[in-house]
Structures are given as C-alpha cells and as structure tokens.
Amino acid sequence: MKRSFLDPSPGTLAFGGLVFTSLVLVAIGPPSARKPWAIENASSPASAPSQVAGPDITLVSVSVDLPDDTVPFPDGPHAAVINANCTSCHSATMALSQPRLSRDQWKAIVEKMRATYKAPVPASAVPEILDYLTAMSGKLPVNGSPTAASADRSGGTG
C-alpha cells in the first residue's frame, strides 16, 4: 500500500485533529503515488512521543533503528559480482542459508529474482553468479539430503 495519504500535507492535517476528538469518518480518494513517509517527532527525541488513547489502551508512537546486515558473501571466485548484485534487497544470508542446490535450481531462483522481483541483475552477470552459488552448494555434503529435482517452485516463500 502506498503511504501518500498517511502523510497529509499541512492543508489536510486539520482533519487529523478533528477525527481525533470526534467519530466522523473521513472519506478519501484513492491513494496516489508513493512518497517517503515523513514522521513528525521522529527526529526530535526531546519531545515525548505522540499518543492515541482509547478505553483501556494507549498507543504510543514508535521509532526504532533496525540493525543493518554487513555480512557479505564470503570470498571466492566472483564474490565481488554476487555481492554487487544480490545484497540490495536482502541479506546474503538468504542465499547462504539454502540447502545444497544444483546449478539449474540456482538458475531458476536467480531468474525469479530478475523477472518477478525485478532485481537489476544484468544477464551478463548471471553465469558468474551461478558459478559462485553452485560452488557454495558444492561445499555442503552430497548425501546430506538431496534437494528435489524440480526447480520450479513458482512463487514459493513463507
């Protein structure tokens, strides 16, 4: 969902105050383009976080820091290529934690990243990425537990 209508311009902020004290439901139009969601108070630790109270509960605004992940793909042939292409959306761990996969299975995953998730990975980088991933899988025990022959798991996730 887009965030735009949650970021009322000064002109519409007034209704925020209104609905806070009344139960009027405000009609809105469809959300428009994405915008960063600027938060009042977020950067002024001196002021107390804003609150919304109801019977038996008060919700208090929250501002947190999410730790960043700095663990890269370990050194090896083409580590630079995979680090450049496969760490922008998720930690390297997403790939590093996978069971032993064949080159074809890795290929299906990398293609899904490009086609479905729109990973900006040039076709020319794919063979080197597959070399890296296949070599990585090759370090796991062969007979540990084979992965299924089918590489096609459609969307997957969960």
Binding site: L6, V19, L23, A27, E40, S63
Partner: peptide
C-alpha cells in the same frame, strides 16, 4: 517504516464500497 506516528496513521477502506474511509487509530480504539 521504522517510525510510526499514531496520530497520523490511517487505515483506508476503499474499492467496491459505498463510502471510502480513512480510519484513524483514535476512531478504531
């Protein structure tokens, strides 16, 4: 988002409905 301002948060209800809504947390509570 790493910051949520509870006073400005709205839940849109829209689509195949008679009235589109933007429900504040104060209303929800």
């Amino acid at each position: 988002p790493t910051s949520i301002d509870v006073q400005r948060y709205r839940i849109a209800v829209r689509g195949h409905v008679n009235r589109s809504l933007a429900i504040s947390l104060a209303e929800l509570l």
